[in-house]
Nucleic acid binder design. Structure first.
Lengths: 221, 221
DNA sequence: CTATAAATAAACAAAATGTTCATTTGTTTA
DNA sequence: TAAACAAATGAACATTTTGTTTATTTATAG
């Protein structure tokens, strides 16, 4: 006989309680009460409190990622996919009240400089999503050639920086405008068309080599 | 030597913690940490945790009431005072984040039907404030004559009902509109001018007696 | 420098909490 | 219908946390 509760129901209830009180102050009794069961029964769904917490957060992050993926898949064009990914990835947190509040309580869920990232596999999937869009954009000749080992990581880091600034450090609307500017900067570059052609002639696109251009040659053309 | 901390500082810090976690989950250690002291020292400012909570809530309610009083005192006209009182009394909670969140956590602070009102003296002051405005309005011939023993209580009850509906039960913007309608209803009455004169002739104003008009006389004029 | 007040931090009793498990209840199967 | 099995309860228990008290230390006033 299967458990009477769907595991997702368990995680949703747990998410709400962890969002309200944080890991420490949330009790198994609080969560069990939210589910209409006793705390002893929770051990059928999780090894211990820490295990429940970790899986609850995973559940919420995966849902976030799933929504972004769905939004991307609705776009036929790589450029539009990139824009939609950026917008949805950030906007989602405004919609997911519980995850947002939990993130604010526990910033370690989404560390800027992770010595030990508890959700590395999920974040790796996000990076892979970005890479996939860049690959497609390059294949469709919509994007410049870029290093697919590092640029997805860079974009993900910039994105992470904004999530932290917008939702964890400050809920200032100015951060949102800054994010929009940053997306424009990344997608359209800084230079005007003519200067961008100039930069291209100097190796603006990534050609696979890791040689750092001789700075003394700067300015020559 | 006086306590190194001003008591209001203590209450502000406590308010923040009680708003975040509620009475039960907030710990004296949380509050002490917010103040940069140890929990043992809190006993210089409060007899016990319950005492600290009660005084913290009093502090917040008194501040609310103080702001309403200040707003009223800026108006020269009784009618404007009444409108300003209604508006400020409700709007204040949108500004006081900590008190609002605490009220949501602990509705017993502001009970609709208090068997035992823990802040009866403060609420009595609110009723007295209303009475004062009604007295002035009547003296200035701006208001109808009303029973000053019961009508202030009625207005306060209606106001309380809206606070609970707007902030505790629902944060629906429709409640706000309903409150505005109710203020208009109370201040301008339901009847048009002519019908209001008609009602006046039938004893619409309070003449001091508690006799209930004979319902069989209804309709005659 | 002394007296006094404020604060710390440890001690302590009580309460709360995470975890385990004996028992009960619900469901499935023969 | 009864037996087997699974899910859930709720009590027990070890551990941790918390509210409160107080001996000691630190800060301040005179």
């Amino acid at each position: 006989m299967k458990p009477r509760e769907n595991i997702a129901t368990i995680y949703e209830a747990a998410l709400g309680v962890f969002a309200d009180y944080g890991f420490k102050k949330a009790t198994l009794e609080d969560i069990a009460a939210a589910l209409g069961m006793t705390k002893g029964n929770l051990y059928r769904y999780a090894r211990n409190k820490q295990d429940l917490y970790r899986n609850t957060v995973r559940h919420a992050l995966l849902r976030w990622q799933g929504r972004v993926r769905e939004a991307i898949e609705r776009e036929a064009d790589a450029a539009r996919q990139f824009h939609v990914m950026c917008r949805k990835a950030v906007a989602y947190l405004a919609e997911d009240d519980a995850l947002r509040r939990l993130l604010i309580r526990d910033p370690d869920i989404f560390p800027m400089f992770p010595a030990d990232d508890p959700y590395a596999d999920i974040n790796a999937n996000s990076v892979a999503m970005i890479r996939s869009i860049l690959e497609r954009g390059m294949a469709e000749k919509r994007f410049r050639s870029v290093d697919l080992d590092t640029v997805p990581e860079i974009i993900f880091s910039v994105y992470k920086m904004f999530i932290i600034r917008m939702y964890i450090i400050s809920r200032d609307r100015a951060q949102e405008a800054m994010f929009t500017q940053t997306v424009a900067l990344i997608t359209q570059g800084l230079f005007q068309e003519e200067d961008r052609l100039q930069a291209l002639n100097q190796g603006g696109d990534y050609d696979g080599s890791d040689a750092i251009p001789d700075p003394r040659l700067a300015g020559r053309s």
